[in-house]
């Protein structure tokens, strides 16, 4: 049936049913939250973990390099989304896990690479050069076992990489995804 209040340029009204399931969890756990003592203990266990991130980090870096080489070899013939995914997904893993295992600088740098990849229109030669620079930097941090935020040197490295991304988009403003 036609709704007389419906405008032509608007999407049709959608029907939605709402359910409020019984809060079984609340019934089970009761009230009161967790004590500061427990939360501090959990945080201390997290910070004191002795897991060596290097083998995992190396594996993700290798995946990124495979992705770069595949794009360089296959160029325009490769599926664009797959090509992006082959570089983006291991980068996300580096960002996610670096900070969990004492390498917050890797998290910061990988985060900026993700931001670059998420708005990049195409994996062209110039973009791949920037991605390689990110890769080299992260590898150096891992090999040098630079734990923590890397201090001033860490800030400088990150700044140089971010500036390279800005220069890229200044030079090629049409290569930015909306």
């Amino acid at each position: 049936m036609i709704d007389p209040d419906q405008h032509f340029h608007l999407a049709p009204k959608r029907n939605a049913e709402f359910f409020t399931p019984e809060n079984q969890l609340k019934k089970k756990v009761g009230t009161g939250g967790l004590s500061e003592n427990i939360l501090n203990k959990a945080q201390a266990l997290l910070e004191d973990n002795t897991i060596d991130f290097r083998p995992l980090g190396e594996m993700y870096l290798e995946s990124i390099m495979k992705g770069i080489l595949s794009v360089e070899e296959n160029g325009k013939t490769s599926n664009k989304e797959d090509a992006f995914a082959s570089i983006l997904f291991p980068t996300v893993q580096l960002k996610a896990n670096g900070g969990m295992f004492h390498y917050p600088l890797i998290t910061r740098i990988a985060d900026r690479l993700i931001q670059f990849l998420e708005v990049l229109e195409d994996l062209d030669t110039e973009a791949l050069e920037i991605i390689k620079a990110f890769h080299t930097t992260i590898r150096a941090i891992l090999l040098g076992q630079i734990k923590g935020d890397g201090g001033q040197r860490g800030d400088d490295l990150l700044k140089a990489l971010v500036e390279a991304c800005y220069r890229y988009f200044e030079k090629f403003p049409d290569r930015k995804r909306e």
Binding site: R14, A16, E17, F18, T20, P21, L25, K26, V29
Partner: peptide, 14 residues
């Protein structure tokens, strides 16, 4: 804690 204290209602649409 969010899940326990502020559970969301559920929606079924098309």
């Amino acid at each position: 804690a969010q899940i326990i204290e502020r559970p969301r209602q559920f929606v079924r649409s098309e």
